[in-house]
Nucleic acid binder design. Structure first.
Length: 504
RNA sequence: GGGCCGGUAGCUCAGUGGUAGAGCAUCUGACUUUUAAUCAGGUGGUCGCGGGUUCGACCCCCGCCCGGCUCACCA
């Protein structure tokens, strides 16, 4: 039977499992007690000179995956990797027990091994482990990507993230930075007295955003449920109940297109603070983002593509001011123009002045908002859950955060008048009747919660994936989501390979 | 969903209407401080899938699958 090269290699390596076992090693290893991780070795001894190491001969015991092998007769070098960082190890025949040198001969790229020895520098100055004991921890049966270019095929990188992590060390950094973003937000909110909560992901009514939901089904209750598009209405129920500062960091699901900025499941931070309003949240947002930048990157100036974003200073414009400032036509409108419904409707296809203002803003301004910017005062038509501005009932006390031309946050003074909220829901129902699938449903339990009296409250949502894109200089949201949504792949066939290899 | 681009060895990529290529990986041999190790030799391909045109298609045409970018929609 003709084998593909890859299956041939698979069979060879599978057979090597028995050879390794015959030498007395367990091919899939066992508990391994190490003295250092590879990142620890590099940070602790990265600056030590050859002379210092020669004098101290620091003992280390560590584990990692083999990425390169250079064999030279009776000795050889390997690079082993852990957490995206690499360390060279040097194995020579006369420095290790005989069976361990035989084991060395059976090692393949991608195998996981443990080594014990002392640190030294080679003639060319590279920090390395002079191996005295070698042990086997896990077998790799598949070829690993090329050492020089790594794995570039984006489809394989997303589908087989484990392989991406093996082949591309920077991926570890990206996801470590993502973890820092999340923990920075969490810690900052906790320090300010916010309590972290978890609210339903499966909801029988969905709301809190304009989006189409995913539908699922509960068998024993025999009811359809929606995967939540936002936690907002539940978090405000908690405010009504007296949990005056709450936040949630969790997944939302929106049944919409996929792009470099959208994944159907994405992570949002939402937080609500009783007795605050959107002005307080503008200040808080600036503080949170500045500290996140410091915690995630070490600096408030963050490189993004060919830009440098300054999270130490968040600009503020009202939406009307932004339209006047960033209007792309030859003649910029005046503040009177953008307050005039006739002017707005003349410059947009939309049917209401408020929707027209947002439409013009999105077309003219959004991509110009490179530096972190707050845009405040949003029309009431597009803000069904926000409180109207006392001075101008056509507008709401709401703002959004932008950076790199991307929306990264949305906040407002929460509407806490149940009768006004009832009217807003009814407006939404009317929009739904006209075919707007993204309009809100009537949520009577939410109205009931407001009817008990919800304190005046400020609330905000921040897109964690998008903030992470900025902090990791990632062009696509898929680069900051470990397993982004893809169509299912075809037959893989590895079960059959294992079946065939083990029957030989 | 529309437009544009891509899919060739395990990986990274060339390629021409006329026998399918390179580097790395892999296999054999040499080599006890190498490092994109080196040197010598070898293995490896349903050229995404299915049709069509043609004496002949990886190449041209049509359809489909998968992915990327972009527009639309959204955060």
């Amino acid at each position: 039977m003709l084998l593909s090269l890859e299956q041939d290699l698979f069979d060879q390596r599978f057979a090597r499992i028995r050879e390794i076992a015959a030498l007395g090693f367990r091919p899939y290893g066992q508990r391994f007690e190490f003295t250092h991780t590879i990142p620890q070795v590099l940070s602790q001894f990265g600056a030590a000179t050859g002379e210092e190491l020669e004098a101290a001969k620091p003992a280390v015991k560590l584990a990692g995956r083999i990425l390169t092998v250079r064999r030279m007769g009776k000795a050889g070098f390997m690079h082993i990797q852990q957490s995206g960082e690499r360390l060279q190890v040097y194995v020579r025949k006369d420095a290790v027990p005989e069976t361990e040198y035989q084991l060395y001969g059976l090692l393949d790229l991608g195998d996981v091994i443990g080594v014990e020895g002392y640190l030294f520098r080679t003639r060319t100055g590279e920090l390395s482990v002079h191996v005295e004991r070698l042990t086997f921890l896990s077998k790799n049966l598949l070829g690993i990507p090329e050492k020089y270019h790594g794995l570039e095929d984006v489809e394989i990188r997303y589908r087989q993230r484990y392989l991406d992590l093996i082949a591309n060390p920077d991926v570890h950094k990206t996801f470590a930075t993502r973890a820092k973003v999340v923990s920075s937000f969490r810690r900052q909110l906790q320090e300010r007295g916010f309590i972290e909560v978890e609210t339903p992901m499966m909801q029988s009514l969905y709301g809190g955003a304009a989006a189409r939901p995913f539908v699922t089904h509960h068998n024993t209750l025999d009811i359809d449920l929606y995967l939540r598009i936002a936690p907002e209405l539940y978090l405000k129920r908690l405010i009504s109940g007296g949990m005056e500062r709450v936040f949630e960091i969790n997944r939302n699901f929106r049944n919409e297109g996929v792009s470099t900025r959208h994944n159907p499941e994405f992570t949002m931070l939402e937080f609500y603070q009783a007795y605050a309003d959107y002005r307080d949240l503008m200040d808080l947002s600036g503080q949170l983002l500045k500290q996140v930048a410091l915690d995630a990157t070490g600096n408030t100036l963050v490189p993004y593509q060919e830009l440098e974003l300054d999270f130490g200073n968040v600009r503020r414009y009202s939406m009307r001011e932004a339209v006047c400032e960033f209007y792309k036509g030859p003649q910029k409108p005046s503040l009177d123009d953008v307050k005039d419904p006739a002017w707005l409707l003349k410059h947009s296809e939309k049917t209401t002045a408020g929707e027209a203002l947002v439409d013009i803003f999105e077309r003219h301004c959004e991509d110009a908002l490179i530096q972190p910017t707050i845009i405040h005062e949003y029309p009431v038509e597009v803000s069904p859950l926000a409180k109207q501005s006392p001075a101008d009932p056509t507008m709401t006390d709401r703002f959004e955060l932008f950076a790199a031309g991307m929306e990264i946050g949305n906040a407002f003074t929460e509407l806490n008048d149940p009768d006004e909220q009832r009217k807003r829901f009814e407006m939404q129902l009317a929009m739904r009747e006209r075919g707007d699938e993204e309009a809100h449903q009537m949520d009577e339990d939410y109205l009931r919660a407001l009817s008990y009296g919800m304190p005046p409250t400020g609330g905000e949502g921040i897109g964690i994936d998008r903030v992470t894109m900025l902090m990791t200089n990632s062009k696509s949201i898929r680069d900051v989501i470990l397993f982004p949504l893809l169509r299912p792949e075809g037959e893989i066939g590895i079960a059959e390979w294992l079946r065939q290899a083990s029957s030989k």
